[in-house]
């Protein structure tokens, strides 16, 4: 098992296909409305007519596939009143269903929408980094599924050595809040965090 597991996203390869989402749903039998991994579409650009009546545009779009980042300083763990939300010795942030009271306070705080409430269980659920697969030496379902090899995982330090430690593109929040174990190679469309150039344009899908 890894000590500090992290996800790595190569935005140059992500087409927003959402195979990771479906692999996750299938692996964990997620019911409708619960998506442990979500692909956000960040889109921007304007259309302006010139004097000849022809449009000019600077449209861009890119996708970001985000699940739980199993943060170093997870706000969900910090704020959970019951300690049900915890970071294990394997670095994985998960919910102890024997304790979770279903207050949804972790959901309020997490800037990645990682903890998700199950009406059926009356408790929170979230990405467990496919702990069972990792124990068997297999990749998490989303990583093994990625058709364009945009999604990887590994030991944070090793990934950081290989790809740098950048993880700041819009619309992600400042990493100072939770210190996410996420590394990103931005693509040429990527806007810096806090940019007002675009917006999440698929709220209905995530």
């Amino acid at each position: 098992m890894l000590k500090r597991p992290a996800f790595y996203i190569d935005m140059e390869a992500c087409t927003g296909c959402k195979t990771c989402m479906i692999a996750c749903i299938d692996k964990h039998d997620l019911p409708k409305g619960i998506l442990w991994r979500r692909v956000s579409e960040y889109t921007g650009g304007d259309w302006n007519k010139d004097g000849n009546g022809k449009y000019h545009q600077n449209v861009f779009a890119y996708y970001l596939s985000i699940s739980c980042n199993h943060c170093e300083n997870p706000i969900c763990v910090r704020s959970c009143p019951t300690t049900a939300m915890h970071k294990g010795p394997d670095g994985i942030v998960s919910v102890d269903h024997d304790k979770c009271v279903g207050c949804r306070y972790c959901e309020w705080g997490c800037p990645y929408s990682a903890p998700q409430y199950s009406e059926g269980l009356g408790k929170m659920t979230k990405c467990d980094f496919c702990r069972d697969y990792q124990r068997e030496g297999k990749s998490p379902a989303c990583v093994a599924a990625c058709p364009n090899r945009a999604l990887h995982y590994g030991e944070y330090e090793e990934l950081a050595d290989k790809y740098g430690s950048e993880n700041l593109v819009a619309p992600l929040p400042s990493p100072n809040i939770t210190q996410p174990n996420l590394i990103i190679t931005p693509n040429r469309n990527a806007k810096p965090a806090g940019s007002q150039a675009g917006k999440i344009s698929n709220p209905e899908e995530v």
């Binding site: 296909c17 959402k18 195979t19 989402m21 479906i22 692999a23 749903i25 299938d26 692996k27 297999k138 379902a141 093994a144 599924a145 990625c146 058709p147 090899r149």
Partner: peptide
Amino acid sequence: RIETDNLGKDTYGSHQVRACLRGRS
């Protein structure tokens, strides 16, 4: 459950024929 091609080391040229979201559903 449905998984996809997991053969080999996934080196380009003998890479895994990974299914898209549809196949996975």
